[in-house]
Design a protein around this nucleic acid. Structure first.
Length: 283
DNA sequence: ATGTGTTCCTGTCCGC
DNA sequence: TGCGGACAGGAACACA
């Protein structure tokens, strides 16, 4: 989990240490994560400069001087830690490798970037930079929720032909790219829409409200530095960087925060995933 | 073409 | 303390 705000926080945290800097050596400690690593990955990540760190949906994209782009997905439990940072922001030296430290980038500037992922639902791949948009994992992604293409007209158009619950629709990365379970629950709460509501049965004014709520909840989370959950850490490795109190996510049984609402947050399962919502103010 | 269920994997927590 | 089961941020894939 990391969703869009967490991935953006990691990207921003890595940028000062990686952008414009050279990866001297890459240790690849196992052959795969969710899928096998690309051919000769360690070789292709040796003596290359990182020109830019970008983000697309929940992917971090590192454009390299070799004219390849490294794609990184954190899956459910992926973390990236910085150590030995020459900027002196992080006071620890290189720690001993830990369990699940699958890939380690040794930067020429002395920093070390460690990718740790216990569940191994994460992924890495390399693709030519000029074709990376057509990569299998990226080509079918919908618009960025914080971008201009994600607007009321687009969302209304997408939802009018869908019979699935709105919860499932917003988790569909083809509709909009980067939302996950937490922020879908939070955005639906803010919009007063029940996660069970059929996508094609949401009145237009409510669809219109949904767009800014999605944007707001993501922007606030990014501004706060991503959420701190069980497996999430900032790129600097700090713990409890931001203890977010979600309005509904993981709040089963708690009182609804809406003023004068007597509702209690409920948990249901949709498509095998928990949805949290207030049955009183979400309809 | 849509929609839902299963699957990958490890770790943590909770009840007995 | 140990043990079993439920559950966890994702999303590709198989199947109706």
């Amino acid at each position: 989990m990391p969703e869009l705000p967490e991935v953006e926080t990691v990207r921003a945290g890595l940028a000062p240490t990686m952008e414009g800097q050279v990866i001297q050596v890459t240790d690849v400690n196992r052959p795969d994560l969710r899928w096998p690593f690309p051919e000769r990955m360690a070789d292709r990540l040796r003596e290359v400069r990182v020109l830019r760190l970008r983000r697309r949906s929940k992917y971090i994209l590192a454009d390299l001087s070799s004219e390849e782009t490294l794609l990184v997905h954190l899956g459910m439990s992926g973390r990236i830690l910085i150590s030995g940072d020459p900027l002196g922001q992080f006071h620890h030296a290189h720690p001993a490798p830990e369990k699940h430290d699958h890939v380690v980038f040794h930067m020429a500037n002395g920093a070390r970037i460690t990718f740790n992922d216990p569940r191994r639902f994460g992924a890495m791949d390399l693709a030519p930079t000029d074709q990376v948009d057509r990569h299998k994992l990226l080509r079918d992604l919908g618009p960025e929720p914080l971008g201009n293409a994600f607007d009321t007209a687009y969302l209304a158009d997408q939802l009018k032909s869908r019979k699935s619950p709105i919860k499932s629709a917003l988790l569909d990365q083809k509709l909009v790219a980067g939302l996950g379970n937490i922020y879908v629950c939070e955005a639906l709460f803010r919009a007063g829409i029940a996660p069970t509501r059929r996508s094609d049965r949401i009145a237009r004014p409510r669809v219109e409200r949904l767009v800014p709520h999605i944007r707001d909840v993501l922007r606030e989370a990014i501004a706060a530095g991503g959420s701190s959950l069980r497996d999430y850490r900032t790129a600097g490795g700090e713990l409890g960087y931001f203890q977010h109190r979600f309005a509904v996510y993981d709040q089963e049984g708690n009182a609804c925060q809406t003023p004068d609402c007597a509702g209690k947050i409920k948990r249901i399962v949709q498509s095998g995933r928990s949805s949290f919502y207030c049955p009183v103010c979400q309809r």
